[in-house]
Design a protein around this nucleic acid. Sequence first.
DNA 1: CATAAAACATATAATATCTATAGGATTTAT
DNA 2: ATAAATCCTATAGATATTATATGTTTTATG
Lengths: 137, 137
Amino acid sequence: MKLSKRGEYGLRALQDLAAHYEGGPVSTNDLAERNNIPSRFLEQIMLILKHGRIVHSKKGPHGGYHLARSPERITLAEVVRLLDGPLSPISCVSETAFEPCGCPDMEACGLRRVMQAVRDAVAAMMENTTLADLLSK
Amino acid sequence: MKLSKRGEYGLRALQDLAAHYEGGPVSTNDLAERNNIPSRFLEQIMLILKHGRIVHSKKGPHGGYHLARSPERITLAEVVRLLDGPLSPISCVSETAFEPCGCPDMEACGLRRVMQAVRDAVAAMMENTTLADLLSK
DNA sequence: CATAAAACATATAATATCTATAGGATTTAT
DNA sequence: ATAAATCCTATAGATATTATATGTTTTATG
């Protein structure tokens, strides 16, 4: 049920980028230093985020990353799915990566019902929370 | 955000044990067969559940496992924590395994606020759901 | 134009975890 | 006595995580 460091670092960096959304690009080094993240590791994460069209980049001096969209239009769900995969506790209730689980009768499975509810609750919270929501007190 | 196979198998086996709560012990082999679980792997899981005081065991022919308490008194939270560890998405919001995360200001961290809410929601669902709830339609 | 700052791209090391299998030891019903 | 079952520990095999390393490319700036 835990987020990977990759996911956690990515979210922290994006939260930082959201805070600096007005203004020029922010370098990996600055992001890493401010948020206590190993900088070479963060570099890879930023690349994933770029390929996932969550950030844009600018090369060269004074280059760096900035959000590809305004903070209100980037949900935590999108980021977590990109960096950490599906939100479901078990694959038989996943929207994005369904797989049967091997229980005798899927429809009658009580465990499945509960895990479906957990997935729905988590997904709803993550889909309704944007990077902008992370900033407001 | 996903449960391990260990956790999933353990829950499925316990759901089965709850269904057979009236009646004698159920062997690992029966549990494994009925639920499509590798039987030697399940053996280890049952041992963990035994040491965690969630099941009792009886050795010898017609031996096996039965719940240590009635199904209404075993929550999914207890089982998942035992087999898969803390429920929190990040350690800085964990009740059972708190650790600071490295963000500049924990109190002001928006990400932390959201993850705290996710943890609380998941924990509440898991703590309020018992093995008995898995059986009722 | 030279330099340095930065992203970009891969490779790979180090570690951990997950999943599962194996080999036996112990208990106990029949 | 036998066989069914738990119990215990080790370890294999696979995969994922986390991180470091090495270098290439782009580009702003002096």
